[in-house]
């Protein structure tokens, strides 16, 4: 069961990494650079969109670059 769970996690790696790390990273980078966000968007939502724009192609292609 542990093995199956690890395998599943590994297959979803880019999406999990996008949510778990890239989303808060992008949000905190936007905040620290004082980037003005459109439509009153929160930094976290903007971070999520940036992270997904990177993570979804990575999930589909199996590589980040």
């Amino acid at each position: 069961m542990q093995k199956a769970m690890l395998r599943r996690l590994y297959k979803l790696g880019p999406m999990i990494f996008g949510l778990g790390f890239l989303t808060p990273l992008a949000a905190q980078l936007l905040q620290s650079a004082d980037v003005p966000l459109p439509f009153g968007m929160s930094a976290l939502l903007a971070g999520f969109l940036i992270a997904m724009a990177i993570a979804i192609p990575a999930q589909l292609r199996g590589r980040w670059v």
């Binding site: 778990g20 790390f21 989303t23 808060p24 990273l25 949000a27 905190q28």
Partner: peptide, 12 residues
């Protein structure tokens, strides 16, 4: 660990 650091405001 990276996720925990990131979501507690220490991603950078």
């Amino acid at each position: 660990t990276l996720f925990a650091l990131a979501w507690t405001g220490h991603a950078i």
